[in-house]
Simulated scan of single mutants.
Amino acid sequence: MDITTVLFYIFSAVLLGSAFRVITAPSTVHAALFLILGFFNAACIWMLLKAEFLAITLVLVYIGAVMVLFLFVVMMLDINSDKVRQGFWKHLPLGGLVGAFAALEMAAVLMGGFRLNAAPEPSALALQLGNTKLLGIAIYTQYLYPLEIAAVLLLVAIIAAIALTLRGRKDSRSQNPGDQVKVKKGDRLRIVKMAPTVEVPAVEATAAAAAENSKGAA
């Protein structure tokens, strides 16, 4: 048994343990931290498989961005996990059955990969270009349509998330671009015609006459 095999079993054991703690941890923050540990061990396994691009993408995107966002949201919302755990034992048999069925499906798909005695040797083209460039060529040539379908699905999910969380508040002030485009100059400025002369009010005329009389008497 070489060092690569030993490291694979170590990383796999830690990955399985952290994945189990994600669903059994009493605190949501601890569950998110265990998920980060699981992602890190998955990245180490990909490094052992010489998939450097996938490993560094997992570290940068999921651990560096997505999980930080998860922790921020969990700590800001202060989720009460007691209500979430209500009815856990009631739904445990159904959940275990679904999990066992998913595990059997994954085992049926991945069983063929364990029958290889040794990993195939990389071709001369792979050694020359590298796995990152070969991955890009395969994605944008052979798997172009599945990539576009996945992009459309993600776009629909983003729009649905925005539509579900968008709430209008009565005390908020915002501008309507449609009303701004339809506005006319008559709605902004109104010219009022006025007479050229304005009559002096009676009160001011009486005060002016009294002032003149007082001056004449003096």
Rank of each mutant, 00 (worst) to 15 (best):
M1R: 08
M1I: 01
T5K: 15
T5S: 15
F8N: 13
Y9W: 08
Y9V: 04
S12Y: 12
A13S: 12
A13N: 07
V14P: 01
L15V: 07
L15R: 05
L16K: 10
L16V: 09
S18K: 04
F20G: 10
A25Y: 09
A25K: 06
P26C: 04
P26F: 03
T28N: 15
H30K: 05
H30R: 05
A31Q: 14
L35I: 00
I36K: 14
L37D: 10
G38A: 15
N41Y: 01
A43T: 11
M47I: 14
M47D: 10
L48C: 02
L49F: 07
K50I: 07
L60E: 02
I63G: 02
A65R: 10
M67I: 04
L69M: 09
F70M: 11
F72D: 03
V73T: 09
V73F: 11
M76G: 09
L77W: 11
L77F: 05
D78W: 09
S81N: 11
K83G: 10
Q86G: 06
F88A: 03
H91M: 02
L92W: 05
P93Q: 01
L97M: 07
V98Q: 11
V98T: 00
G99C: 12
A102S: 10
A103S: 15
L104K: 14
A107H: 13
A108C: 15
M111I: 13
G113A: 14
R115V: 00
L116F: 13
A118W: 06
A119D: 02
P122H: 06
A124C: 04
L125Q: 10
Q128K: 15
Q128S: 14
L129T: 08
G130Y: 09
L134R: 03
L135N: 04
L135D: 00
I139M: 07
Q142L: 02
Y143T: 00
P146E: 05
A150H: 02
A150Q: 07
A151Y: 10
V152L: 05
V152Q: 03
L153V: 09
L153C: 09
L155E: 02
I159Q: 04
A160F: 04
L166Q: 14
L166I: 06
L166P: 00
S174V: 15
G178H: 03
D179L: 15
D179P: 04
V181Q: 10
I191V: 12
A195W: 01
P196G: 05
P196Q: 03
T197S: 06
T197D: 02
T197M: 04
V198N: 01
P201T: 01
A205V: 01
A208M: 05
A208H: 12
E212C: 07
N213V: 10
S214N: 06
S214K: 12
G216T: 09
